[in-house]
């Protein structure tokens, strides 16, 4: 019933959730020896029309510390707030889609 855009926004929010989960787990493991930063390839996953659960990848090119851990708290905190803001944007968009639908339902029954 909603526009096709709503389906895209839903997928976008799903991917943001998955990514936020990985960011939280990277932050939790910031002191775990041998842990490698994990992420998803956002562009590829979003264009993957089949949907389904996103694949996790290990981020390359980060500075590895003495204990084999390569979590960068700067990178993770940037992604943390970026994801939250993107999610906020997407949910506002979805909400306005719903508002349009609701007003069509409510106003449709009225006779001028």
């Amino acid at each position: 019933m909603l526009s096709p855009l709503a389906g895209q926004v839903e997928r976008y929010m799903d991917l943001l959730t998955a990514r936020q989960k990985l960011v939280a787990s990277n932050i939790a493991n910031a002191d775990t020896p041998g842990y490698h930063t994990q992420d998803i390839d956002f562009q590829t996953e979003f264009q993957n029309a089949a949907g389904g659960p996103p694949r996790t990848i290990e981020v390359q090119g980060l500075q590895v510390k003495n204990d084999g851990n390569d979590v960068s708290l700067d990178r993770e905190s940037r992604l943390l707030s970026e994801n939250a803001m993107r999610f906020q944007l997407a949910s506002n968009l979805l909400r306005s889609e719903m508002r349009i639908l609701r007003s069509a339902i409510q106003e449709g029954g009225k006779t001028s």
Binding site: Q20, I27, A28, D31, L80, A84, S91, R95
Partner: peptide, 22 residues
């Protein structure tokens, strides 16, 4: 590190609240 985890929980809490606003 504890603070970083608190920040992560705060950001996720915000996302959950946004979803519920829908």
């Amino acid at each position: 590190n504890y603070q970083a985890n608190v920040a992560a929980i705060g950001a996720v809490k915000d996302m959950i609240e946004r979803s519920m606003d829908l």
